[in-house]
Design a protein around this nucleic acid. Sequence first.
DNA 1: GCTGTGACTCCTT
DNA 2: AAAGGAGCCACAG
Length: 115
Amino acid sequence: MANRSAGEIAIVNALRRLKPGEVVAYGELARRAGLPGRARWVARVLAYSPVDDLPWHRVLRADGRIAFAHGTEAFTQQVQRLQAEHVNVINGRVRMPAPGDSLDALLWRAVPSAD
DNA sequence: GCTGTGACTCCTT
DNA sequence: AAAGGAGCCACAG
């Protein structure tokens, strides 16, 4: 039996494990799903997965920036969803967790940025 | 089966 | 801070 969508299922499961207010990078989510280096696969799953109740808005680029261009509908919607979960977003950027910060930082501090 | 594309990431100027 | 390039891999043509 082909494991055609095994990775996709793992990605969706990892996504479902995210708690409100918790954000991760595409690559980090891929790593949690047991698929290191498959960040682009995560992005594709978020874009095309038939499951539509996924917390896609909790996934950001590795530097904490939203993956969409400013002014797009997707960008605006992601910012709104994040703010609804008390995630501070400034100029399309969120502070990514440092390795030691983990549990204390359920709410991530905003990072000022020029953009 | 080869080529181009992309909601990515890392390294090197 | 910004830009270029390589690696990555599923998918469409």
